[in-house]
Design a protein around this nucleic acid. Sequence first.
DNA 1: CGAAAATTTGACATGACTCAACTGGAGTGG
DNA 2: CCACTCCAGTTGAGTCATGTCAAATTTTCG
Lengths: 193, 193
Amino acid sequence: MTKDKHQALIENFEKEVSLNEVEKEIIRDYFHFFTIQKKKDLLRSGDICNYTFFILKGCTRSFNIDEKGIERIQNFGFENYWVGDLLSLFTGEPSSLTIETIEHSQILKIHKDDLENLYNEVPQLERFFRILYQKAYVSSLKRLNKMVQFSASENYNQLIKEQPNLLQRVPLAYIASYLGIAPESLSRIRRNS
Amino acid sequence: MTKDKHQALIENFEKEVSLNEVEKEIIRDYFHFFTIQKKKDLLRSGDICNYTFFILKGCTRSFNIDEKGIERIQNFGFENYWVGDLLSLFTGEPSSLTIETIEHSQILKIHKDDLENLYNEVPQLERFFRILYQKAYVSSLKRLNKMVQFSASENYNQLIKEQPNLLQRVPLAYIASYLGIAPESLSRIRRNS
DNA sequence: CGAAAATTTGACATGACTCAACTGGAGTGG
DNA sequence: CCACTCCAGTTGAGTCATGTCAAATTTTCG
């Protein structure tokens, strides 16, 4: 009895759209499984993002280097998260993002051309990804709101309340970068909590 | 010779998709023209956003009230901008946004149900709005990046470089709100520029 | 002209940054 | 198994940007 490496992916799709067996098989053909060590890149800044990744197991961070040379983490990826650089994927321009694994990970990937083909073969997925992007947009707006409206300390406390597992899996320096503050500041914030 | 109130709208669509005369006529039927005084609401916080607006002439601001009771401007609208609350429009939930005119304005609006019908009659528009939302998403990500990465002063200077007209049309207090800083701080930033 | 609103200024408080030094734990090699 | 190094995290001291509150000034508009 072999384990179905695509099971979590199929389930993820089925939260939004329904799929028959034939369609599931097509999907399994298009998404390629691979494993990757910790601290390795899924995407490197300057490269064009040709793939969309679905995380089965493990953890990633997406960051860019700002004009002052500082790493700015934009988001983390965990089990059942989609990662990639939508901007580069949409435009075909080089990405400003680097996506790096934080843990040894198991990942499914699909090439953007294959994704186009997949849309034709399983049209429901067009809907799925439209919804996914809408949600991504909304969460980006919400995050922007939080950054403007709350202090670093408030943002930290809300973050660990929403994702307590973060502390076990991600170094504090990464969390500081995600919150847009210096590691020293996060350390002081934690002391006073 | 009557002036075609929908001309700018049609041209906006035609930047992304092509339309024949029949389709243009359908579009003209679905989008309703109205004028509105300054300081009036297009959408009021707590209401469900049922319309998408296209600004022909004038200027708007979209803001919410944060937990500290402060108005936070999320964006401005000018000629040929689309405004509305995508989140409320997508979900059907009450909006947290208020959209208010800053100047006497001329606007086209379409009801969300009509927009669904329009998608069926002119399918290219589905593509148009998908692209519009993608761009909105990307610009939201960029703005988030700027807020984290740059100081208020840097953000102000970049803003007026990109949109010098803003200063002529929008009170400084609104610009401060958009930048996420106190009006007094903006005043000091301007003095030292 | 006069009232109300927008903007500026002053004084002071505070949150976050920087730079440097220190601590503690995890690996590594002899 | 110990000594060493490396890295993450913490702490301290001083600085700076921005916030807050109150008051002064300027602009707008009826």
